[in-house]
Design a protein around this nucleic acid. Structure first.
Length: 803
RNA sequence: GCCGAAGUGGCGGAAUGGCAGACGCACACGACUCAAAAUCGUGCGGGAAACCAUGCGGGUUCAAGUCCCGCCUUCGGCACCA
């Protein structure tokens, strides 16, 4: 017998798969059901594949491999997401073009992925920064625009006086991470996709998916759908503004109103406001704070009373003061709130700080803190101090007050979303150019679709400009163009799209990656969608997932894709931390290069260890000892060759084998890879105990390990003459008969404590089992009185309650 | 702060409300060997025992790592990193 040599075996099979295009898939195969299994396409960083990629890719590869053996026609594609700030910064640092860096990195990625034996369909590889890919990203943006879902809006950006617009992660404690200048918030017109129009469907359609519960919950919380009322407030000195509230029942408790400091309403009142200087000062202070700082609950409440103006509460005509406060954001809701200190803790603290009176309108104790909706809803609590509504329950009053205001014509029922529209502009070089043209006569018009892709010009300098405009804005050949509608001289949009753009639809392109007429044909999309299993990082369970769902819903409404939910099931892998329990990083020096591990122990050992090291969705600490152990385990499987003894299945092994088949099948299906491996280990231990097995039993063992250790399993298939390739075989079926036992072990408790484990015939009745239990010495010792109750859970436990 | 997740032996981790610690690592002992490595086998939470043990404090239950209430700690996200 040859010794197990992973390097040799793995090279052989990787070559075999490549030459035979084993994992290339057709859209239709007679008699086979299609199944689409997807991993998030990575950013191809220069470091190459890291352990985190290995963990998720090898685990999901195991799912794909098992599904194929189960007779499914499996699409399991790979691509790279190369646009974005990270690539741009790397390029600036290395003084190279992003294009060059990306190309180099992708090559490294591909070869590394092949070295760990992933069963991707390499004929479908895509890359989000390729022209024939982003052509379609641009084309889809134009469809969004034509549908009225893309428009320029006034937004706020982080502003550094030296470096221009900054990403949030480039701002540290109010200073620029590059030059350490103080940053401010600045208004800027940007392209926005109107995602809030899809808010309700994005929330409700989660019911159509099988996402893990916590992922659904994260999505729902992010969307933050709330039902409430939008109410108009007249300003005594002229004009009006609206607020949104989910607590209309507290409207009689209003003692002040708060506007966002930068609100247009405030500008309109400029002549009436007698402390305008203070307003300007407060605005300047606010501009220094990030949104995060502004809305943080624990911070000191800040605000400013607008002197000389007041608002009228429409429900009772009462006059109340108007404040500006930085915790109210101009871009969120209506940019104004009603304040009821007795029933909202933030308003309570604000009122205390500014000496504003409080009016209690709901029964309860408000002497120390506000009585909030979580305290009073659903308990039949009644209103006070609310004119004709006094004495109604909160729930009755909600309806009655809304009706009254709606009838008065000053209010509307409304859905509000915490989720905001998607800011789609970046003043960066390394992204898809937004294919829009600003014509002095026609306004914003899209580039002609036949002219796409609008290519990103190759330039020497692509660092952000000092004036905060995109690097493209200083390239006259790019900027100057003619209007596609009227032919007048016009200027191109110079902003590029965010990294999220290409990743919002790449899974559609995999269905038909070489199509030059459409982003994908209807037939191909129909053949594969929806994605059956989508795996990605936990950090993407809110935003990327939401953007992709939104994008697909829009395309669905345009009749361009056949599904309105792209992903049936979504799961996430946990992080791999360093051996020291800290995040792997260069500075911590705790990083591990998968290539070196493959060199030392082989790809199959690494694959098995990745799956075995812990619960898939939980973080784990790296340990090379565990990898060594997996190598040892594969060696044991290799050495079983010598124990194979004829073709008669041994009865003693059948129970262990079928238990393993059942467990491994269920576990892979449910993404419990660690216990799947442990089930195979138990089987192998059993084989070593019995020391002989049949060809059929060995073959089934090899099939069970093949999703995790495909090279080893294929090689042993070859050696044992079970077939040239494991791909031609079927996944083993459970023989339920082999799982039937004549006798079972039954733990016996007395008063809830296990006192013995007795062996009982599996056919025994409850009474018989009680008799067997009572006659057990250990049990009898603890039966010191009468048995007053017997709790028997078949096949689980017997509990005797003694008094 | 808000949203989400996690906390179990020396370590990684198992456990549809039903024998806590499966499986593995490390360790110890034994077999093989001149010897070592490799391999194979045995043992392995604490405690003499009664019992005590799943981050902390309460509760529900015949029975709680698991369910409920209140805390603590760690990690991820919070909209221009993707």
């Amino acid at each position: 017998m040859k010794v197990y040599n992973p390097a040799e075996v793995e090279k052989k099979w990787q070559k075999f798969w490549e030459e035979n295009k084993t994992y290339n898939v057709k859209d239709h195969v007679e008699g086979k059901e299609n199944e689409y299994i997807l991993i998030e396409f990575p950013y191809p960083s220069g470091i190459g594949l890291h352990l985190g990629h290995c963990r998720s890719y090898t685990a999901i590869d195991a799912v794909a491999r098992m599904k194929r053996l189960c007779g499914k026609n499996v699409l399991f594609p790979f691509g790279t997401d190369a646009f974005g700030l990270e690539a741009e910064r790397t390029a600036i640092r290395e003084k190279k073009l992003p294009q060059e860096i990306v190309e180099r990195n992708i090559q490294v990625f591909h070869s590394q992925l092949k070295e760990i034996g992933l069963s991707f369909d390499w004929s479908r590889t895509i890359n989000s920064c390729d022209e024939d890919y982003y052509k379609w990203t641009q084309w889809q943006f134009i469809q969004f625009f034509k549908k009225g879902l893309a428009e320029k809006q006034e937004t706020t950006v982080n502003w550094c006086p030296n470096c221009g617009v900054l990403a949030n992660e480039e701002v540290e404690d109010g200073t620029c991470c590059q030059c350490h200048a103080e940053t401010t918030q600045k208004a800027k017109a940007q392209w926005v996709l109107k995602m809030t129009e899809y808010g309700e469907r994005l929330a409700d359609d989660l019911d159509k998916t099988d996402y893990l519960d916590h992922i659904k919950l994260s999505q729902l919380n992010w969307i933050g759908k709330s039902e409430g009322v939008e109410v108009d407030f007249e300003i005594k000195q002229g004009g009006k503004f609206s607020i949104f509230t989910t607590c209309i029942e507290t409207i009689y408790g209003i003692t002040f109103m708060v506007l966002a400091p930068e609100s247009k309403v405030v500008d309109n009142l400029k002549d009436k406001i007698t402390n305008w200087d203070e307003v300007l000062k407060y605005r300047a202070e606010t501009a220094k704070k990030s949104e995060f700082d502004r809305t943080e609950m624990n911070k000191d409440k800040s605000g400013l009373k607008l002197q000389g103006v007041s608002a009228i509460n429409p429900v009772n005509g009462k006059e109340v003061d108007i404040y500006i406060g930085d915790f109210v954001l101009a871009g969120y809701g209506t940019g104004a709130v009603m304040a009821v200190p007795t029933h909202d803790q933030r308003d309570y603290e604000f009122a205390d700080k500014f000496g504003i009176p409080k009016i209690q309108v709901i029964e309860g104790d408000v002497s120390e803190k506000a009585l909030e909706k979580y305290d009073y809803l659903g308990k039949g609590i009644k209103l006070i101090n609310s004119e004709e509504f006094t004495g109604m329950t909160v729930e009755e009053a909600k309806v009655a007050i809304t009706d009254k205001l709606v009838n008065m014509g000053v209010a509307r029922k409304k859905l509000n979303f915490k989720m905001r529209d998607w800011i789609f502009s970046r003043q960066r070089y390394w992204g898809e150019p937004i294919p829009m043209i600003n014509c002095p006569h026609c306004g914003w018009v899209p580039e002609k679709e036949e002219n796409l892709p609008l290519t990103l010009p190759h330039v020497d300098s692509y660092e952000p400009t000092k004036d905060g405009e995109s690097p493209l804005s200083v390239i006259p050949e790019f900027v100057n163009t003619i209007c596609p509608v009227c032919g007048a001289a016009a200027k191109r949009e110079t902003d590029t799209m965010p990294g999220w753009a290409g990743s919002s639809w790449y899974f559609l392109r995999y269905c038909d990656p070489h199509n030059t007429k459409e982003f994908a044909s209807k037939e191909a999309l129909k053949a594969w969608l929806p994605v059956k299993l989508y795996n990605g990082g936990n950090e993407h369970t809110t935003r990327h997932l939401l953007y992709a769902r939104f994008w697909v819903k829009v395309l669905y409404d345009l009749d361009l894709v056949p599904v309105d939910e792209p992903f049936k099931k979504r799961i996430s892998q946990g992080l791999i931390l360093g051996a020291d329990g800290k995040k792997m990083s260069k500075s911590a020096g705790n990083g591990v290069d998968p290539r070196i591990m493959v060199e030392r122990y082989g790809a199959d050992s690494l694959r098995v260890w990745m799956s075995f090291m812990g619960e898939y969705s939980e973080k784990v600490n790296w340990s090379e000892d565990g990898l060594k152990a997996c190598n040892k385990f594969l060696n044991k499987i290799w050495n079983i060759q010598e124990l194979v003894n004829g073709d008669n299945p041994t009865k003693e092994l059948q129970f262990a084998l079928n238990t393993a088949i059942k467990k491994v099948t269920n576990d892979i299906e449910n993404n419990k890879f660690n216990t799947a491996i442990s089930a195979i280990m138990i089987l192998v231990n059993e084989i070593y105990k019995v020391k002989k097995l049949s060809n059929d039993e060995y073959k089934k063992l090899l099939l069970l390990i093949s999703p995790f250790a495909p090279h080893l399993a294929n090689e042993l298939f070859d050696i044992m003459g079970y077939g040239r390739s494991i791909e031609d075989c079927a996944w083993p079926q459970v023989d339920e008969k082999a799982l039937q036992l004549d006798e079972i072990e039954m733990p016996v408790q007395v008063n809830g404590r296990v006192r013995a484990v007795v062996t009982i015939p599996s056919s025994a009745s409850q009474d018989e089992i009680v008799e067997i239990a009572k006659s057990n010495e250990e049990v009898a010792k603890f039966i010191t009185g009468n048995i007053v109750k017997v709790i028997y859970v078949p096949k689980k436990i017997l509990n005797l309650i003694v008094k």
